[in-house]
């Protein structure tokens, strides 16, 4: 079966600085892939290239059969296929939870308001927050806001979801509720590319782990590779944490 996401020899520079130095990997449909690595190793950049928040200098990126690096790419079509959740939630503060969730369906897919509301109820149930549908973001805890952000992404029925350190801004006692939602999604067959510092989550939930180091895929393998690192860099990373 064709990969849901594939990167082939991707190079990305910011000005003079090369941040991705020939990154290649694939994510199969339904697969959960965790990306780990030190801060600054290019994890976020790799993720942001996949939904074209960043453009690349060379290499190929494909998502659900669509060439992401094609300058003539239909951006809207690409972004219907791929959702993204950020470290800083990025809920729209002037809109209610329902409005946050229904904004994209109403604007992008022209979903009628009643139908959009029904979708909001459905995705909120999936993240366990149906009682917050009419709250404003500032009335929610960080963990709740992040679950709404996940629900907002789900409302567009993406085929692939990107997660960029979605629990890093949360108090430790709030990370569990977000990770649980992600685990349920993974079990439900969602294709997920997850940048994370939660090693336990990576080991338990991910089908495969990618360790990035200095802009390259340094080591890759099943979750169990975290118990048996091959390279000294991964060994050191696992020993010292971030």
């Amino acid at each position: 079966m064709a990969a849901a996401v594939s990167l082939r020899d991707v190079h990305k520079r910011f000005g003079e600085v090369e941040v991705l130095k020939g990154v290649s990997f694939e994510v199969a449909p339904g697969e959960v892939v965790a990306i780990i690595g030190r801060s600054g190793s290019g994890k976020s950049t790799a993720l942001r290239c996949v939904n074209r928040l960043e453009t690349i200098q060379s290499g190929e990126i494909e998502l659900c059969g669509r060439r992401v690096d094609d300058p003539a790419l239909d951006l809207r079509a690409l972004r219907r296929d791929v959702g993204m959740v950020f470290q800083s939630y990025n809920l729209f503060p002037h809109l209610t939870v329902a409005e946050n969730i229904t904004l994209a369906p109403r604007r992008v897919r022209r979903t009628p308001p009643a139908e959009a509301r029904r979708i909001a109820e459905e995705v909120l149930t999936r993240v366990g927050l149906s009682d917050k549908i009419d709250a404003y973001p500032e009335q929610l805890s960080g963990g709740q806001q992040q679950r709404v952000a996940i629900a907002r992404s789900l409302a567009m029925e993406p085929k692939v979801m990107l997660f960029d350190e979605v629990t890093s801004a949360l108090d430790p006692h709030l990370t569990g509720e977000v990770l649980k939602v992600m685990e349920t999604l993974a079990k439900g067959g969602m294709t997920m590319l997850v940048v994370t510092h939660e090693m336990a989550f990576a080991r338990r939930v991910a089908d495969r782990v990618i360790f990035m180091h200095t802009g390259k895929v340094w080591e890759t393998g099943p979750g169990s590779m975290l118990a048996d690192p091959q390279t000294p860099e991964l060994k050191e990373f696992l020993a010292n944490g971030l």
Partner: peptide
């Protein structure tokens, strides 16, 4: 308006005018 807001909207597929 924080740039993250705009990125979130882009990731959701909203157009520039939207």
């Amino acid at each position: 308006i924080h740039p993250g807001q705009i990125e979130a909207a882009q990731a959701l597929g909203l157009s520039q005018p939207q």
